[in-house]
Design a protein around this nucleic acid. Sequence first.
DNA 1: TCGATCATGTCAGAATGCTGACATGAGTCA
DNA 2: TGACTCATGTCAGCATTCTGACATGATCGA
Lengths: 152, 152
Amino acid sequence: MSQDGAGVDLETSLGYLLKEASSALRSAMEGVLRPLGMSVTHYSCLELLAQRPGLSNSELARGTFVTRQTMNVLLQALERDGYVTRPAEAPFGKVLPAELTPSGRRSLEKATAAVRSVEVRMLAGMTEAEQSGAFRILQSMVRSLRDGNDGV
Amino acid sequence: MSQDGAGVDLETSLGYLLKEASSALRSAMEGVLRPLGMSVTHYSCLELLAQRPGLSNSELARGTFVTRQTMNVLLQALERDGYVTRPAEAPFGKVLPAELTPSGRRSLEKATAAVRSVEVRMLAGMTEAEQSGAFRILQSMVRSLRDGNDGV
DNA sequence: TCGATCATGTCAGAATGCTGACATGAGTCA
DNA sequence: TGACTCATGTCAGCATTCTGACATGATCGA
């Protein structure tokens, strides 16, 4: 199965498995969000805004792991469709705090329920201890990867 | 910090953390692969072919978590640049087995070393037991997500 | 043997995200 | 005060990936 001497054995690589898990999660989320006419990034943006009202474009971008240019395009669409509002002028500096409209909040409700069901399914068969263990380990990975990243 | 009653708390959501970890890994891999003129999918394809010579386009697509259309575009580019060869005619059915050329193998060597260093960094500070625990847990997540996915 | 079903390779067009670039406002330091 | 650095919002162009569609070859059941 494993090729001796090869650098990264896909069968035992945690990096590969991480990618696989992330792909499966994304796929499952797309599956439940598509009927609602929502993409994963779309949903992530609304969810983030619901939990932290007033976040700026750049902050939302960091929170959803896309560039601020990408988030800007998405925010403009969400604004046009009436899910999000931003003031015409920045109250301070250039930062424009965004907020959900009632329509945005309504639209988010169904999506949140759908995504929660996916997360529940993902955690099926795992004990509480395993879940908190997974949490610690993933956090450790993120920290280690960020550290050596030269601030990029 | 947490909003009581909200469906998915980002601070404690394993799904969100999984996405964060995957994003950090991808970012780190892009960082080391870019100087080599290689994208993550590009590398993944070569690595997969090195470990399992003769994989078809569709099999490579599944192994790198992209569609077979995407992999087809990539394979054509890799073929054009002399990293991969495929027979002009299928030895059986329509399946075209792909293989690395010596040039492809050479190009992969540096990339493998770079990616391995990223994986080592990611696992820094984790015990053997934690790593195998992480492996089991991620596998469990993948299985649970796939199960309810209606075969998509 | 024949028709239905499925997987594959491939082309074309659309969607999504990224890099590059620019102007603007805040903070820092001499 | 003035120069410098940094983060932000935004526009434009490019890269990557996806969805839709089609023809072809293998497989299976009647």
